[in-house]
Amino acid sequence: MPILKSTFKPAFQFRNGFVSTIYSGLIRKVTLEQSRERIETRDADFLDLDWSYADTSAELNTSKKSDSVIILLHGLEGHAQRPYVTGTAKVFNQNGIDAVCVNFRGCSGEGNRFYHSYHSGATDDLDDVVNHCIQEKKYSKIYIKGISLGGNVTLKYLGEDRIIPKQIKAAISISVPVHLNGSATELHKLKNKAFAIRFRKHLLDKLKVKKIQFPGILKDKDLNEIKTLREFDEFYTSVAHGFKDANDYYTKSSSLQFLPNIKVPTLVMNALNDSFLSAECYPVKEAKQNENLFLEMPDFGGHVGFIQKGDVYYNEKRAIEFVRQFDTNELNVIA
């Protein structure tokens, strides 16, 4: 599809990508009532799902259960209570759609059962959640929204050689590093040093738990030698998940190569001032060549920082608009 024209115009103070990223990630607050459900994965691990429901009795004057749900996937070392996740859930609930916020393995406050956990290209867990929504919860309409790492998982899942259930009607990916090697290079630059240090600390804290859980596999010396995110992926992510090395992991897990195969209407929104993304993370060619792929590139927004006046962020507003209108001609297409 042609590229979508963005109408996002934030207040002056939020035109700075660093400011909008920090405000969205550390300052924003969202109040949402959630209930937790634990499901078993196909490999005998578990996922914790945090549910919130449409107020259908108030919105639709009926007690009928919603037939629609949005599956929300968080970013690297996030969880299902992060405001960029709960903000979307709240908007969809207000529009008559249930929401299930997925905690990736080890991200719900409790470590998972195995040495391996989650990564940017692990799509089987998403498939398990989709099947749970269809088989156990009986939803007839499913939407998926992934943020950052979760966005890459979403796009890769939709473009892989698998049968996508007919219940999946649309998807949205926000601030998504579709080219993992390029994004990793950007994260290691001075402009992102504060973010890289924070990610590294959280990831190493998880490895320290693994060290206790699986004695003999990890040594203090090994953990002390991990100085960068790429070294973490070299030492742990690639080895634990069956890749040859970090480059092999980045190459095989990047969603960019799967975009041509996507057959579900999908919106990708990457801000042009997102310091986490490399030039390869703006898939203009792929969007123009795939009628199901819509690319919006606002000038501003940073990394998941699409702040606008009011409680609803621009990317959340666009998400609900997209699932309602993707099959119309109201998409602000650039000629």
Rank of each mutant, 00 (worst) to 15 (best):
S6C: 10
K9F: 06
P10G: 06
V19Q: 05
L32I: 14
T41W: 11
D45H: 11
D45G: 06
D48S: 11
T56I: 14
L60F: 15
N61H: 13
N61M: 05
L76T: 14
L76Q: 05
A80Y: 08
V85H: 06
T86V: 07
T88I: 15
N95F: 09
D98H: 12
S108I: 07
R113T: 01
F114I: 00
Y115W: 08
L126I: 05
D128Q: 09
V129T: 11
V130Q: 11
N131G: 00
I134E: 03
Y139A: 08
S140F: 00
S140P: 03
S140C: 04
K145N: 14
S148P: 00
S148N: 06
R162S: 04
I163V: 15
K169T: 07
A171F: 07
A171R: 11
S175F: 12
P177I: 06
V178M: 11
S183V: 00
L187W: 03
A194G: 01
A194T: 12
F195I: 00
R198I: 02
R198V: 04
R198T: 12
K201G: 00
L204H: 12
D205E: 14
D205Q: 12
D205I: 01
Q213K: 12
F214A: 01
P215Q: 03
G216V: 13
D222Q: 11
L223E: 13
I226M: 09
I226F: 03
E234P: 04
T237C: 06
V239E: 15
A240R: 03
A240N: 09
H241V: 02
F243G: 02
N247F: 06
S255L: 07
P265N: 10
M269F: 03
M269K: 02
D274V: 13
D274K: 11
F276E: 03
F276Y: 15
L277T: 12
E280D: 15
Y282P: 04
Y282T: 05
N292I: 02
L293Q: 01
L295G: 00
L295N: 01
P298F: 08
D299K: 15
G301Q: 07
V304I: 15
G305P: 13
Q308L: 02
K309M: 01
V312N: 05
D327Y: 02
T328P: 10
E330W: 10
L331P: 11
N332M: 13
A335R: 13
